[in-house]
Design a protein around this nucleic acid. Structure first.
Lengths: 251, 251
DNA sequence: CGGCGGCTTGAGGTTGGTCAAGGCATGTGG
DNA sequence: CCACATGCCTTGACCAACCTCAAGCCGCCG
């Protein structure tokens, strides 16, 4: 397990994501494989990162979902983002002396543990990998920026529409959703903690979307019935989620 | 102007920020200097990036302030962040085919224009620079994450307290604020557009902070009278703004 | 079968947005 | 040098939105 072949690494969701942005050579891939060799399994509802503690390792998600959030003294919780396969648990929380927010698994997960020193060494040794990670970080920041707009200025119904489309699009990007439907990994209270609404109000807004024929639900499965209308309602432009190839100047 | 000496580059606010994170060698610095050689001056209130258009260049801020924001169809505006010296206009907006949000100068500015291809070439040629930029991006993402919490879950008074302390701390970090006071670069409407409140309500909340003796104001100058109380009120932990040195494994 | 977590719905109250008007400082042009 | 315009701050009144609290229900799992 310390020296996996370079082959399997290509199918890792993180590498799959990189491949759309920048072409990595064999050396890059085997350096990545060296670093992604510590598989860790985490059960649903387990904390992975707790705010305020020191973490000297990142975890790259192979499978499962988690939430990145902050708890306030009032007891309120704000979820910044849902973490999906190919995401990095601990970005950017673990780049600090003490984690700046918490992460909890919301399903069983398989992760690859990467000590921060190994990560740093990889970045400083492999410029293309560091560049790919920089693009990755830019996408992460863009997602956060959209969430600021959601929470700060959109109406509740708009927020929900935006969040549903964002989740659909992200899940499709990792092959975990069909053309027009997906399984929402969060409870309604969880959704409320993402978009800044109370659970009852999330329920009312979902009911409104159903009543207006924009979505249908059965259990946690959400079916998008009128994507065009939802896009207009939530002012959703998938551009910020779409992988942009890094233009590589001729050598 | 095409080939500045490696000396002046050390005093650039971006490099100053990098220096706290990672040590760059002469080659790194001169590569940076090569890239930061196109000075641009922008007048207050001029757009630098307009959402939806294509930009193939970044602008590194040497002087002045700008806002990164999104306009909604309703006419509402959400500011994601105030851009200060040492920040990169166009991160992460310009990493996409079309800019995912807008940037407007709120004071006269001096910038260094960096074509995206040059930027990419720098990253892929200079691993340490790419790594420093990755850390930079992580800090940016952490700031956004705090803004999500602000807009989503904090009470108006708490938001304002948090925003004031964040602004003070960031300005101090670039040597643009004293121990306990700073000049707010935004109007009250602008502040409202950052923290998701209406201008009248920002005014009411500011009045409340003044009434309670936490701050004093004269014009756009804000003086923090009781930092401890403000920190508790806004649950402000400056950790996410503080530069963490990148631990560099022995070669 | 019983308990629990999560969904659903309702009633009521506060918060904070909207609208509006006035004040004050700054800047500009006659 | 004054008249006026402009932009921003300040304050008040009103009202809708959304939170809180609460109760009931459903489905799932032990």
């Amino acid at each position: 397990m310390r020296k996996p072949a370079a082959g399997p690494i290509r199918s890792h969701p993180l590498v799959a994501r990189f491949n759309h942005a920048i072409s990595l050579d064999e050396g890059d891939l085997s350096a990545l494989a060296d670093v992604l060799n510590r598989k860790v399994v985490v059960k649903k509802a387990k904390d992975i990162i707790v705010e305020g503690y020191e973490y000297r390792a990142l975890h790259v998600v192979e499978n499962g979902f988690a939430i990145r959030y902050k708890l306030l003294h009032s007891g309120k919780r704000q979820i910044m983002n849902v973490i999906m396969p190919g995401d990095i648990v601990g970005f950017p929380a673990c780049f600090y002396e003490h984690a700046v927010f918490s992460v909890t698994a919301i399903s069983d997960m398989t992760l690859h543990r990467v000590p921060l020193d190994d990560f740093t060494a990889l970045c400083t040794a492999r410029a293309r990998v560091a560049t790919a990670l920089l693009w990755f970080a830019a996408r992460e920041a863009a997602i956060y920026a959209e969430h600021i707009v959601d929470a700060g200025r959109r109406e509740p119904l708009e927020r929900l529409a935006h969040f549903l489309l964002e989740t659909l699009t992200r899940l499709q990007g990792i092959g975990a959703a069909s053309e027009d439907s997906f399984v929402m990994p969060l409870s309604q209270e969880g959704v409320g903690n993402v978009i800044g609404l109370s659970a009852p109000h999330v329920n009312r807004m979902l009911a409104e979307l159903r009543r207006d024929g924009l979505i249908a639900m059965s259990g946690h499965e959400v079916r998008i019935l009128d994507r065009a209308a939802l896009q207009i309602l939530g002012e959703f432009h998938p551009a910020y989620l779409i992988r942009t190839p890094i233009h590589q100047p001729a050598p």
